[in-house]
Amino acid sequence: MWDRIKSSLKYISQWSGKGVSLLTLIMALLMFTNAILSNVFQINFIALQESTTWLHAAVFMLGAAYTLQSNEHVRVDIFYRQYSAKTQAIVDIAGTLLFLFPVSLFILISSWRYVSLSWKLGEASAEVGGLPALYLLKSLVIVMPILLLIEGCHQIMNNIEKFQQAKHEESVS
């Protein structure tokens, strides 16, 4: 059961990361198209410009959990790498419980009204010719902390196993 839950949590973060890689490619192609249209043909489309901005925001918000899973996030690593595997696991669990979970919950709770109001208004871009459905982009402000909470649970499970394995290795040697 433990392994099944752990692999399901891992899959969710991986799925979001793979989706982000596709969004990044689409964003790059749209930026290239926009540059050619505006610089060569003097044609500007507000919707095209906004779509690259929206995709950029989506890449960061949807990619946060995958970045955490891949251990590619910013880490102040002054002492951490010198610690034993057991101590690293404790530090990671404490960091998840004391920082990641509270911050993610704060973002989730504090942004709920902001996003729900956007949905009620059917909010669209303020620019003439801009993209409709701004509320979909704003919804990512709620999706991001949910993905981070899911990955946080996965991280805790990994670190519990890391701690138990290190404890077992200490007792054997």
Rank of each mutant, 00 (worst) to 15 (best):
I93G: 01
S111E: 00
Y66L: 05
I109M: 12
N71K: 10
F106I: 12
L68T: 00
I109L: 08
A65S: 15
A64R: 02
S111M: 14
E72W: 14
L68R: 14
T67V: 09
N71F: 11
A65R: 09
F79Y: 06
Q88V: 08
I90E: 04
G63T: 06
R75V: 02
E72T: 14
L98H: 08
A65Q: 06
I93N: 10
V103C: 15
G95E: 00
Y83K: 08
I90Y: 07
V74M: 12
V76H: 00
Y66C: 04
F106T: 11
Y83T: 05
N71V: 12
S70L: 12
I109G: 01
S111F: 05
Q88A: 03
A65D: 04
Q82N: 15
F106P: 12
N71Y: 07
Q88M: 13
V103K: 13
L100S: 06
Q82S: 15
Q69R: 14
I107N: 07
L98N: 06
L68I: 13
L68N: 10
I90M: 08
L62N: 03
I109A: 07
A94H: 13
Y83F: 13
A89Q: 00
F101I: 10
S70A: 15
L97F: 14
A94E: 11
G63C: 00
D77G: 03
G63Q: 06
Y80W: 07
E72R: 15
H73A: 14
I78N: 11
S104K: 07
Y80L: 01
F101L: 07
L105H: 11
I93W: 05
D92Q: 10
K86H: 05
P102E: 10
